[in-house]
Design a protein around this nucleic acid. Sequence first.
DNA 1: TTGTAGGCGTTATCAG
DNA 2: CTGATAACGCCTACAA
Lengths: 353, 353
Amino acid sequence: MTEPKTQGPAASPETGKKPARNGKANATIYDIAKLAGVNPSTVSRALSKPGRVSAKTQKLIEDAAAQLNYQVNPFARALPTGRTNTFGLIVADITNPTFFDIIRGAQITGTRRDYTLVLAESAESAVTELTAARRMMTTVDGLILASPRMDDDDIRALARDKPVVVINREVEDVPCVIPDVRKGIGEAVRSLAGNGHKKLAFVAGPARSWMSARRWEGAQAACEWSHLEAVRVESSKPTVDGGRQVARDVLATGATAVLTYNDLLAIGLMQELQAGGMAVPDQISIVGFDDIFGADFTTPPLTTVRSPLGECGAGAATRLLDLLQGSGEPAGTLRVETELVLRGSSGRVFPAG
Amino acid sequence: MTEPKTQGPAASPETGKKPARNGKANATIYDIAKLAGVNPSTVSRALSKPGRVSAKTQKLIEDAAAQLNYQVNPFARALPTGRTNTFGLIVADITNPTFFDIIRGAQITGTRRDYTLVLAESAESAVTELTAARRMMTTVDGLILASPRMDDDDIRALARDKPVVVINREVEDVPCVIPDVRKGIGEAVRSLAGNGHKKLAFVAGPARSWMSARRWEGAQAACEWSHLEAVRVESSKPTVDGGRQVARDVLATGATAVLTYNDLLAIGLMQELQAGGMAVPDQISIVGFDDIFGADFTTPPLTTVRSPLGECGAGAATRLLDLLQGSGEPAGTLRVETELVLRGSSGRVFPAG
DNA sequence: TTGTAGGCGTTATCAG
DNA sequence: CTGATAACGCCTACAA
């Protein structure tokens, strides 16, 4: 009644480490080689390079592989080559809907080109971000940084190691993907001017945000062009709550139109103003930025300058994979267009007055 | 003017494969061993197991490692051990905000325990999902499936290979995390009943959705308990647009209260009804499900049964990592509570009437 | 075109 | 407690 002494390799019932839980260890190129009657190196070639093997043996090997249900071991492959068919994406805040579309865009174009997405977030902290980035660098073939918080120098240092693409920020010597705000803001301001507005309040985002600065510049330029007065209002944080808090400051400016750093601010602002009895857009027009998910849930639906977030994610991934797959290294920064999405929260000044 | 014949190992300017772009290849345990004057295997021990090395050499090695800025090579480690400190998450639709919180929850508890999240989506296709899952299985230590579309059997097959945790669906023999809808629905129906409603319309989700069935059951049970009549209305798709389309069918039921399969449906429905001149909640009460991002952007803000999505993601990750780190294999299914979030879209029947 | 041999960085086994 | 040494699965000159 004792255990038989001879047991398969998948024996030791308690250790259960290597040969997975199902007992049958994965097939290797050696198994295939044996089955196909060739040398392992030939199998390797057949399975990686296309035409470096005779059509006959090619088929032989492929059949054997299929029969054995072979799957390459990514780690074994990564060891000698260093390549993993994997790329990382680090976002500043996984809570922020702005990044949802970016993640989505990157994920989709990634899988389309047979790359896997590895995701991390920095929780808005520059050091966490750098740590995460460093960790990832050892695992992935390349990295996408969405709205990074770390220093330019740190980014460049990373980029020296492996391909890096930055979204929503311009870093010298590093390929970037950034929405060009001019067109969208121009459209928004022209629309506002056409509706008789004379003064625009811009609700700024975080002080250190590269994008916020660009948007403020854009607003100023467009206002000048359209003969509008532009005033800037600071916000405490770029959230719905921050939008609520900034309401009184906005009113104090006397502006009849508002452009916010992002949609969250616009939504909060609108809620607060409406709660205070103001009519939107009859008494004040509100224009957000980004066109995040839910921007059209509000009443009235939010007019906003759409930033093609999904496109940014996709564009960054494309750029990165091009770099990885050796399409030269032209890089440079890719600009994507913004556009006005006209909905209900903006309109004529005091139409009833 | 010819090239010097002796070049460093990082030479060949065009190949540039292994020794990264920066030239200095990463330090290995051999380098550390040399510097510390010990054997590589000792270094390995010192760096992985805690107390299997004398305190003296331990420090020696750690110093050398720090000095060399050593970082383990995950692939080299994965090869003999099979472990990667990585787990996968496959969601049905990366577009759907329902999954945002799940992703977020999983990501956060993952990194907290030093695991990296690998993300993929199935684009609502069962085969894509299975393919993605199979691919991932070779790379990750375990897998989380959120609202999977594939067959129970496929899921079980995967689970036989490596630990798998399922969210939003119950699969026998596989650990699951599912929101228990009873409490939340109970609260919602009681609230409605307390406001004088006599008839509730339930707008169903996808026919094959496990969750939709549970929610309908829950609604029926709660209505029976509270002496409400429950009628079921089918929707074409669980989106804002689907909600709009279902409006006339809902009206046709004559119900004064509506509970929808998810928030998106509720939002679309509310938009359509309001566009048709109906007052919410004065003429009809609407209750959504999930409490997704943006559910409070609407006017009135949406009353909804909150499904703790973030908690689901976190719970699934915790469960998975526990399994991975050997805390026995009790598994079983984890139920998380739902609760009513009372906002403005529900209230008394015809208060003005 | 195909086989041979060595290496990628770690871990694990077995002596000492 | 520490030192050899053999895997782990695949890739890649180099040789045949």
